[in-house]
Each structure stands twice: as structure tokens, then as C-alpha cells.
Design a protein around this nucleic acid. Structure first.
Lengths: 125, 125
DNA sequence: GCCTCACATTCGCTTAGACGAATATATTAT
DNA sequence: ATAATATATTCGTCTAAGCGAATGTGAGGC
């Protein structure tokens, strides 16, 4: 679904992609919506830093934010401009082939989608 | 044909693409080798500025330079890294859809590849 | 109301990049 | 060797971006 509001200038898109932290954030958002607290946990970076980079991506028009109570969820939003969309897609696919990026995703899987605690049934130690 | 020498970090590639002048240069080089003097003429920018941006692109590993006498010819060289190559390809394709970029290419055609003067056949006005 | 949690933003600093102007280098012509 | 041409690099300045530290804001919980 297209993002709509802000026009993504080509330059702005490339500038947004030219930063390690932002690429890692986008990588974690590939195909899913992610809460800020997970970004902080997985990337091991300060919360203000994460927040600033998310703001940058939002202004660049490639992610959208959704509030849910106290939490903010971010997700990638395909730019309306077809050219920008194809570049973003190429970038995301490239990220999927990177070892470190895969490791980040794996850690997010474990932190986010795994059961909170190992479930222990009484009497089964 | 791959460029080889310098590894193109993803970040470096995006940074190289995040500048109007450099995108215009790449656009002019799409599918052909171009002499520096044409860049200067077509873009209407100072020679040192053009030269600096070409150096940046060369360091980023996405263009190659070839000397021929007093002249330097630049051309796009596909990065060895497949991910970088696909991103560069997507970028170039996107450039081809832009009005201003098309205009630049047209001007290069006229300056570089057109007959120097209109050929006039005698007796045909 | 007040307090806390989850984020966002601002401040001051440092650094990278872009620019014009000037200068340096390499090649050919004389 | 000198000069001219084509291109590259350096210098000084300015602006934008990244960072940590501190502070601001918005939503629940009490």
C-alpha cells in the first residue's frame, strides 16, 4: 500500500538509505510492523538515536508510524512513486542477502515472536 | 563487466547516489562512455565541480576512467557485488523515466553524437 | 490530580560533504 | 624547453548530519 503524503525525491530516498542504522531498521521492518522497544533492544543502540533515525525515515516517506497505547509501531510504506518503490525493493532484497542483517532479523524473531518464558507445567519440573 | 577493485559497501553506494550532480552524471553515462568536457558542457557546471563528483563516483566503485590523450572518458562499471549491481540498475532505470534526465541525455546526443553541422545536399535546399 | 513508562525532541559538539577559487598535473603542440 | 589544453586536487568556508546528554510529551495507572 502506497504511503501517499510526502513525495519521495530520489535524492531523499538515497540519503535515507545511506546510513547503517537506518538500513538495519528497515531490514527489521521488512514484511512486518515493529515496536520501537524492539529496535532499541535488537540494535543495542540508545533510544533517542533509534527514534531520530525512525523520524528521518518517516520524513523521507518510506516508513509509517502507528500508535497503540504507549507503544509506537513502525512499518515500511511503499512510496507512491514507482521508481522510488523499485529502488526500495531492490535495497530490501539486497539486505536479505547480508549475513549481519539476517542475524538481526533472527534476533528479532526470538525477542518478539517467541514465547515470553519457557512454559513450565506444574509437577513436570 | 564488473568493476572489481574496490568493494562497494551498500552505504557507500547510496551515499554516492544521494546527490543531484552525481545522478545527472550517471544518467549521462547510461550505456555509453562520456568525455569530461561533455559533462561540463551539458550540465553547465564548473569543471572542478564535475571532476570532484566524478572522483567521488570512482572511489565509490561505480564508474571507471579511461585516458585517451588529453581527454578522460568515464563510464559506469557494474559493481561486482550483485546486490549493489541490482540497486544501481534500479536507480539507472528510474533515471530514465525522469523528464529532466531525459532532457540531459537528449542534449548529450545533440552535442556528442549528432553530425557537427546539418548536412545539406546540394539542390535540395 | 500525580507518577511512571515509552517515545520524541532539543542542545551543543564534532565531523563529512559541497562549493568556488586557486593551484597542480599530465599530455600534446610548437 | 615553453606554452596551451584538459583534467585533477587543494584550500578555506559553509552547511548538514550524526552523536550523547538532557529534556519534553503523550498515554495509562494510581
Amino acid at each position: 500500500m502506497p504511503c501517499g503524503s510526502k513525495s519521495v525525491s530520489m535524492i531523499g530516498l538515497f540519503a535515507a538509505l545511506a546510513d547503517t542504522t537506518r538500513l538495519r531498521l528497515l531490514n527489521l521492518m521488512a514484511g512486518r510492523e515493529v515496536c520501537v522497544c524492539y529496535f532499541v533492544e535488537i540494535l543495542g543502540q540508545s533510544q533517542p538515536k533509534i527514534s531520530r533515525h525512525l523520524a528521518y525515515l518517516r520524513q523521507a516517506g518510506i516508513v509509517a508510524a502507528r500508535r497503540e497505547g504507549k507503544w509506537m509501531h513502525y512499518s515500511i510504506c511503499t512510496p507512491a512513486d514507482a521508481a522510488a518503490a523499485s529502488i526500495l525493493a531492490a535495497a530490501l532484497e539486497a539486505l536479505g542477502n547480508d549475513r549481519k542483517m539476517r542475524a538481526d532479523r533472527a534476533r528479532l524473531d526470538r525477542a518478539c515472536c517467541a514465547p515470553k518464558e519457557k512454559v513450565v507445567f506444574p509437577g513436570r519440573s
